[in-house]
Design a protein around this nucleic acid. Sequence first.
DNA 1: ACGACACTGAATGGATACATTGCAAGGAGT
DNA 2: ACTCCTTGCAATGTATCCATTCAGTGTCGT
Lengths: 224, 224
Amino acid sequence: MSETAGSRVASQRVAEELRERILSGRLRPGTRIKQDELAEELDTSRIPVREALRILETRGLVEVRSNSGAWVGQMDLHDLTMSYQIRERIEPLLLADSMPRLDEGDVAELRDLQARIEANDDLETFMVLDRELHWRTYAGHRTPQLASMVERLWDTTQHYRREFARLMGARGAWAVNAEHRLLVDAIAARDEDTASRVLALHIQRTRTELMRHPEVFTSWTAGA
Amino acid sequence: MSETAGSRVASQRVAEELRERILSGRLRPGTRIKQDELAEELDTSRIPVREALRILETRGLVEVRSNSGAWVGQMDLHDLTMSYQIRERIEPLLLADSMPRLDEGDVAELRDLQARIEANDDLETFMVLDRELHWRTYAGHRTPQLASMVERLWDTTQHYRREFARLMGARGAWAVNAEHRLLVDAIAARDEDTASRVLALHIQRTRTELMRHPEVFTSWTAGA
DNA sequence: ACGACACTGAATGGATACATTGCAAGGAGT
DNA sequence: ACTCCTTGCAATGTATCCATTCAGTGTCGT
């Protein structure tokens, strides 16, 4: 039961639909979300919509203000670099939690994903595969609490990662692929320490690059 | 405007009241929360209660399950030690973010709090003062995102920290006080590196102690 | 005696209707 | 022409009522 997909609970359905729209980029940061509109569009009442907004607030995707309305979450450069610094520190923890329970099947899947990323040159495909690869490395975790913190960080930065990837084009691909290979190799070798360090490096290097490209934000400062 | 206290928005009022009950220990982990009861007790309808439950879910205090109900959040030993490991890694970041903007007044306040903690021997007072001291060190932060992650970790572990403190009695006081002094001194000296390390040590040492006392959980395994 | 199935009731989920808030446009006064 | 106030509208917040779900219980059948 994958749940949430065609969940019979309306609020879950609405939340899932909204999340998809935000992560896919169709709904940009800063966009106002009106309860009436969404309710009518998804053919439901405002109650499930309100629930959905709260649910997405839990996941960091939406900001709700009393007596005012809801907006798609937004970040500035400082927030974004902080997100990466947090990721640098906690994702290695999640990876270490996960690795002991990864099996040969996972490693094979990782190699496959890694190869597909190298062969690919489409932006949206990259966004999906990159995410899939990293989450596959976390598949063995036993700490939903930590996993959801990390997921939240990925979700809230999704827009900006996409813009950054678009900006870099193929330029940054080599380093990313190298890091992915090193990561997968370390996992295959059951070397937690190396894997953690590679991952931290991967995130840290991306942050450094990112800080050199504040243009990522110029396109939607007027999003409100 | 302190907001939320006597907020005119019912859902906020309910959320604030519930949070207070949970953090104070009056509502224990695992307790079922019935919408009807709360609504009647706080003299409102179920709608604001439902909103409040979602709000507290955002903060990690409540767990809501579809078509089933809401419970006060609960942890096991693994969750708790993970919370501390996460804190070890991200609180120093928050502290470093805050320190450059702490002034003499903050330092004076810290010294005062530190002295009051040493002079105190009441459990509930300790819970309040300890929390106040640490949050005072974070007062200069510019990253609400990170601060709320940390607040969430404090909130969700509040019960277990209380039980642990109760268990330790005066036994662990010396080390805590020493660490607090070292922390405040480093902050007064504007030494970010030392302060971060002392803080990480403080959290790490507490985690180590904690892992030796799984009894913290025995008292409410049957909380449901 | 044990297990499966149907029933019952309590609690949550959702829809409609009404109340309240807040913002913005327009008019009156200076 | 500018400012302040009033007024109206649009969007959010709340209440009541009805629908749905799930768990517990009791009975029937084997």
